[in-house]
Amino acid sequence: MLGLDFPKINEILRWQDIFSSFNKIGLIAVLAAVIGSAIFLLAGSKDHTVAPKGIRNLAEIIVEFIEESVVMQTMGKKGLKWTPFLLSLFVFIYLCNVPGIIPLFQMPATARIAIPLFLSLLVWIVFIGTGLKHQKGAYFGHLLWPPGVPVALKPLVGLIEFFSTIIVRPLSLTVRLFANMLAGHILLVTFALLSEAMFQAKTFQPFLNIGGILPFFMLVFLTGFEVLVGFLQAYIFAILTAVYIGTSIEGHGDEADMAQAH
């Protein structure tokens, strides 16, 4: 009706390379690493004897959030040595998500599949490695057959468990993060384009030019929503990693059943 000309998906996801083999996604990833390191290094260098404030307070809140809500809820006390890894995952993913709403960037680095895929494969290697380290060769037995499976069902259960653990886990981790951020990005683009088109419409001017405020409000609301989504996705990635590693440490337990529910 409006003749809204929606750009092709690559047009809203790809940018001109900054230089050969380095593009905006790489830039955001590097910036995320630099900013994350800077925050925590600065926080570590502040006086630790007084009550924390400013950057140290921020860093300590994040650390305690990871310890309380991610590690303690899934792995318990013996998982505390995984805190640095989960903390890095959380902070890195969050800092890669947040540029989606920062002006001039306007692109979450995780809306491209490269970074989620790499992180998922890393988590995959880590949890299988942890399982092998903690349970030796028995890990694969635990992985394939939960305790109490009748012998007759073993081939079927083994096949399902193999797929769900070895293939579906990393894939779903990747797709969850990537697709959430991509969907958010597309939503933002849609409403931004719609507002622009309505503000600049040449036909039905009084109606369209004023009505353009509605998609603009929606855009503002969605921008706020994306902050939440960026945080939530980083949190979910971290907590699922914790659950997977916890399963590898303990073998099959309640958490294992929960983690393999899909």
Partner: peptide
């Protein structure tokens, strides 16, 4: 290239954090 840059950035970041 994105995988490489992302991986490099994350690994460096994780090592610094750790």
């Amino acid at each position: 290239k994105e995988v490489i840059w992302g991986a490099g950035a994350f690994i460096v970041f994780a090592l610094i954090m750790r």
